[in-house]
């Protein structure tokens, strides 16, 4: 049996918002150590990976591993019906065909229970090896969101170049070109670790979608390495993360 309680529905709302633009159906795997989810988008260009350790929850119990096939649009509708301040408890039996979501208001005067039908999903899981990234950049997540938004006005393709001097985002299109450079700051809000310089091209549409996770974390980590997908990571309250992987564009 699974029983997992979050103190605030707001966190679940943010997580669902960060997932639902990339994937519509996905399996949430629950075990005694927490919850994991991994799915590629329909066009196999990006992958999202969610991890919530038990520390994310006020209460967590999972006696036996259980996989919950979720329709994220349906889950989104349910969490929208709750107030962000409500607590939410997710419950499922060992061989569940439905997920129970119980919301309780702050003063416990209002409770709302929803049953969500679960799906049997046959999804590929990919083994992502530990990667020694050539460049790791950390910056305010709002800054990254702003850059991705601004770049997408100019081109579908965003070129990211990273050197010891800084990280540069470039887009070139019919309108003209855009270049935004960020250097490391002494106060530490932008850090840039470079083992070797790198330049790669990515689909701006996907980068923009990743920034739906901005409300989850003040900071974002961007990791690049030759010949491997880009990693964009948002941490979740010290006990979890949402990671997006994006295959680079390559010259024919």
């Amino acid at each position: 049996m699974l029983e997992a309680r979050l103190g605030e529905t707001q966190l679940l709302k943010k997580i669902v918002d960060a997932l639902k633009e990339i994937i519509s159906l996905s399996t949430l795997d629950c075990s005694e150590t927490g919850m994991q989810l991994q799915s590629m988008d329909n066009s196999h260009v990006s992958l999202v990976s969610l991890s919530l350790q038990t520390g994310c929850f006020e209460k967590y119990r999972c006696d036996r591993n259980v996989s919950l096939g979720l329709d994220l649009k349906s889950l989104s509708k349910v969490v929208k019906s709750a107030s962000g301040d409500d607590s939410v408890t997710l419950s499922a039996a060992d061989k569940a065909d439905k997920l129970l979501l119980s919301f309780e208001s702050d003063n416990k005067s209002r409770t709302a229970d929803y049953e969500l039908k679960l799906l049997n999903l046959d999804q590929d899981h990919l083994g992502i090896p530990d990667t020694n990234y050539a460049c790791t950049v950390q910056m305010p997540s709002s800054e990254f969101a702003r850059i991705c938004r601004d770049m997408s006005m100019f081109s579908e393709t965003v070129v990211i170049s990273c050197t010891k001097q800084g990280i540069k985002f470039s887009a070139n299109g019919d309108l003209g070109s855009a270049n935004i450079k960020l250097a490391e700051t002494s106060k530490g809000d932008i850090t840039i670790d470079v083992e070797e310089p790198i330049t790669q091209s990515f689909a701006g549409r996907y980068l923009n979608t990743f920034t739906r996770a901005t409300p989850l974390s003040d900071r974002v980590k961007i990791c690049l390495a030759p010949e491997v997908p880009l990693l964009v990571e948002y941490s979740i309250e010290d006990y979890g993360y949402i990671r997006y992987y994006l295959a680079p564009k390559v010259d024919d």
């Binding site: 992958l47 590929d124 899981h125 990919l126 579908e156 689909a203 997908p229 564009k249 010259d251 024919d252």
Partner: peptide, 14 residues
């Protein structure tokens, strides 16, 4: 325009 790679080509299916 550069081509878009398939992400699954980078990782092994489990």
């Amino acid at each position: 325009e550069p081509l878009q790679n398939d992400l699954a080509e980078y990782y092994d299916k489990l």
